[in-house]
Simulated scan of single mutants.
Amino acid sequence: MDSHDLRRAGYQDVPDEAGGRAGRSWWDANAREYVEEHGDFLGEDDFCWGPEGLREVDAQLLGPTQSLVGRRVLEVGAGAAQCGRWLASRGVDVVSTDVSARMLAEGAAMNRRTGRAVPLVQADARALPFEDSSVDVAFSAYGAIPFVPDAIAVHTEVARVLRPGGRWVFSVTHPVRWAFPDDPSVRGLTATRSYFDRRPYAETDETGVVTYAEYHRTVGDHVRDVVAAGLTLVDLVEPEWPASNGETWGGWSPVRGTVLPGTAIFVCRA
């Protein structure tokens, strides 16, 4: 959205319903731009957990990749399904879901270019169109959770579709980052707001319509949501910024990444 179309942007209270549905329209409007800007870093069939560049091929947070063959894997908030495509290239039975039709269209184009036809399903992560206990592993790399006011609804749906003992792994902006300006320079190293201020970052247009909303939760909030959904937290991974990564992505950069955690990855079990 052009800046002149914005009436207000910042940390503010917005109605949950309005904030929750803004994600679909925002990602529809910005899908092409997002893929063009971050495509080289993400690849078309690679599994990246966040801006630090931690790859699943190294982290194995879903378990040894070979052990996923023959099991049912669900990607939630897939974007263009780069992660799902990487798994499919290794023989994993994976379905990738996202709320945005335009992001899935980008994914379909990548399917054609790579020759790896990952099934793509449009779905709100809070209402997954899958049967109870039908999935062995579910994951989300920066998808869904940050963009809904009721993350517990996502966890509850994932818990519903997971088989007993199934794994749920999701990455989000590290909660501590919300106390600091979203600035990749040294200015982003000084806290300017309370970590406990849970107002979302939101943008509204000239008519007052919420066009973007991203939600902050403390570490404790995330843990309580997971537990309330009936899941067990088994690990919390905070990737360090590698010296080899010179990428700047929004507020993520080597300047900040060597000092402050940027991503939190929650590993859970049903």
Results as ranks from 00 to 15, higher is better:
Asp5Lys: 10
Arg7Thr: 04
Val14Ile: 14
Pro15Trp: 01
Pro15Ile: 01
Ala18Phe: 04
Gly20Lys: 03
Gly23Asp: 04
Arg24Met: 13
Ser25Gln: 14
Ser25Ala: 15
Asp28Val: 11
Ala29Gly: 11
Asn30Gln: 13
Phe41Lys: 03
Gly43Glu: 09
Gly43Thr: 03
Glu44Arg: 09
Asp45Lys: 12
Asp45Ser: 15
Asp46Glu: 15
Cys48Ala: 11
Cys48Ser: 12
Cys48Gln: 07
Pro51Leu: 09
Gly53Leu: 13
Glu56Val: 05
Ala59Asp: 10
Val69Gln: 14
Val69Cys: 09
Arg72Asp: 15
Val76His: 02
Gly77Phe: 02
Ala78Met: 10
Ala81Gln: 01
Gly84Trp: 10
Arg85Ile: 12
Ala88Lys: 12
Arg90Asn: 14
Val94Gly: 10
Thr97His: 11
Val99Arg: 08
Met103Phe: 15
Asn111Tyr: 10
Arg113Glu: 14
Arg113Asn: 07
Thr114Arg: 08
Gly115His: 11
Ala117Leu: 12
Leu120Cys: 01
Ala125Trp: 05
Ala125His: 08
Pro129Phe: 06
Asp132Trp: 06
Asp136Ser: 06
Asp136Thr: 03
Gly143Asn: 07
Pro146His: 00
Phe147Glu: 00
Val148Ile: 13
Pro149Ala: 13
His155Asp: 11
Glu157Ile: 04
Arg163Asp: 02
Pro164Cys: 09
Gly166Pro: 04
Gly166Ile: 05
Trp168Glu: 06
Val169Ser: 00
Arg177Phe: 06
Arg177Gln: 14
Trp178Tyr: 14
Trp178Phe: 15
Ala179Leu: 07
Phe180Leu: 05
Pro181Met: 05
Asp182Ile: 04
Asp182Arg: 15
Pro184Phe: 07
Val186His: 12
Val186Leu: 13
Arg187Phe: 12
Thr190Gln: 14
Phe196Pro: 00
Arg198Cys: 10
Pro200Gly: 02
Ala202Phe: 10
Glu206Thr: 13
Thr207Trp: 01
Val210Gln: 02
Ala213Cys: 06
Glu214Thr: 09
Thr218Gly: 11
Gly220Cys: 06
Val223Arg: 11
Val226Trp: 01
Val227Lys: 02
Ala228Arg: 15
Gly230Thr: 00
Leu236Val: 14
Val237Gly: 00
Glu238Ala: 12
Ser244Leu: 02
Thr248Val: 15
Thr258Phe: 13
Pro261Val: 12
Gly262Tyr: 02
Thr263Phe: 06
Ile265Tyr: 05
Ile265Arg: 02
